[in-house]
């Protein structure tokens, strides 16, 4: 099944009179269960690509089919609902809420899914256990190491059973040992649960986890290789 399909997607940013074409006529398909790594220098368009895939942004022109549905014309509320139910984000800076405990951070997507407090807690605890942080449930992010924080963030991304995981340089702020642990989690998720995974990275050894590498340059796809 085709999870993600871009058809002639163009994204233009306007700065006054100046126009910047960040994505230049991108057409690409990603199947369900793929493990994709996105590479490319800054300004190559990879972040914009991720934002559109993650329904945080919409194309200027062209079409984006998510599970066969054209979401390029969706409104803000509909996009929020797709993000909530279908997409799990993992960020370089973890982006946990500092004043919420690990458990509460994991519960966050469930709040917006309208799930009851009791069920939220059960599901969040279950997911935290899955990333090996059950005993840290009531700890605040600042009391956790970088690797642990990223595992909480992954739990948050997974808690509402998304269809895809989008990770923007998830190991960018981690040491090599933690990086490997995090990548092992992504690998396990992809292999055991068949979760479509897309990771942006600069590091070749991280990119080697993926079974498909897409390189961006100047808003275009430079190469698309499967290993």
């Amino acid at each position: 099944m085709t999870q993600i399909k871009f058809e002639n997607v163009v994204k233009i940013y306007k700065f006054g009179d100046h126009e910047l074409k960040v994505l230049d006529n991108i057409s690409i398909s990603i199947e369900k269960g793929e493990f994709v790594c996105i590479m490319g220098p800054s300004g190559s368009g990879k972040s914009t690509f991720m934002n559109i895939v993650g329904c945080l942004d919409t194309p200027t022109s062209g079409k984006y089919f998510f599970e066969g549905v054209d979401v390029s014309t969706f409104g803000l509320d509909e996009l929020a609902e797709i993000r909530n139910k279908k997409i799990g984000f993992v960020f370089q800076q973890f982006n946990l809420l500092p004043r919420a405990t690990a458990l509460e951070n994991v519960e966050l997507p469930l709040i917006y899914a309208g799930i009851s407090a009791k069920e939220r807690k059960e599901k969040a605890l279950e997911t935290l256990s899955w990333v090996g942080l059950k005993e840290k449930a009531n700890v605040y992010p600042r009391q956790l190491s970088g690797g642990q924080q990223q595992r909480v963030a992954i739990a948050r991304a997974l808690v509402n059973n998304p269809a895809i995981i989008l990770a923007d340089e998830p190991t960018g702020n981690l040491d090599s040992k933690s990086s490997m642990e995090i990548m092992e989690i992504f690998k396990r998720l992809n292999e055991e649960q068949g979760l479509t995974t897309i990771i942006v990275t600069h590091e070749p050894d991280i990119a080697s986890f993926g079974r498909r590498q897409i390189r961006f340059l100047d808003g275009k796809i430079l190469s698309d290789t499967k290993t």
Binding site: A80, R83, F89
Partner: peptide
């Protein structure tokens, strides 16, 4: 602002 961004990313609608 960042907290708002995080909430939106995990599915908060503008109305929420």
């Amino acid at each position: 602002t960042r907290e708002i961004g995080i909430r939106m990313a995990v599915g908060a609608k503008p109305g929420d």
